[in-house]
Amino acid sequence: MTIETKQNKTFRAFLVNPYIIICAFAVLEVIYCYFTDNLWVLRILLICNIYALFAVSWDLVGGFIGQISLGHALFFGGAAYVSALLNLHFGIPLILSMISGVLSAIIFALILGLPTLRLKGPYLSVVTMITPMVFIAIIYMYPVALGGDCGCTGFQSLANGDLKTQFFIILAVVLISVLLILKLTNSNFGLILKAIREDDFAAEAAGLNITKYKIINFIISGIFAGLSGVLFVHFQGAVAPTMLEMTNSILPIMMTMIGGIGTVVGPIIGSYVMTFCNEYLVKQPEFRIILYSVIAILILRFSPAGIMGWLKKGFKA
């Protein structure tokens, strides 16, 4: 009896192990992709993966140090623009322009993080909310170079636009990135982040330079958000100011909230839920907003820790 209970417990712990969940997702997707001819579902799965990385990157800031960034679209869209424009206007090879795009996210993170993360209070939220709007204004001001309202096309796509190859490349990059983030959050660095989230005053009393850790974490988050933007733009083959809009900043927050904040796996689940809802309801945008609101209210009411919290609770019982 005791052995059985112990075995059950181990099995349940195994089922909610984040590494197992993430790898299971990846394996199922690879199998599906290998056998399917349904390119529509494949395309949605690909977008799910990109948004999963975007949401996980937001979770690093929102879930692990408790700082609410309302402008993660800046990393997503900003890195996408840098990569696309370098490739389009200067002919820089795809891989180099993508790396440049991701590196530009570090600069964005420093611009936003250095002045705001030293302070306590809502400064990061306010500054991150405003900055993408400034970038959109700049894009409108220079339509020839930056594409203006319509954005830009004509730059190189990943794998020359072959969807299946694109799918495998993006899945591999996202999988490695998410596993790296998971490793990071389970390391001593992750413990420091959690301590800062719990009580930054006490974390400082423990001898930690909390500003340094907040900025490093913000840069890491920016890098992965930028990476997701770069993958998206070279899959889509077009870049537009909508990538920098507020809705794109709210999206990872919603995904994280639905999936479970501060969990890494939660935002991935949330991204699947929301991306599939988005695609199925693409012709009814008003209904989509109502559905998101209802989901958010239900989650907050019945499982504030999101789907992941609900799963953990279920498997513990």
Binding site: N188, F201, A205, A206
Partner: peptide, 29 residues
């Protein structure tokens, strides 16, 4: 703190969601 001064608080300030082990580990880091 690194120089060698540390303190406790009148109203205790544990890292609530962390275990006892992790709470102490934060200080070691």
């Amino acid at each position: 703190v690194i120089k060698g001064i540390n303190r406790t608080f009148q109203v205790v300030r544990p890292f609530s969601s962390l275990t006892v082990y992790e709470n102490i580990k934060v200080g070691c880091l």
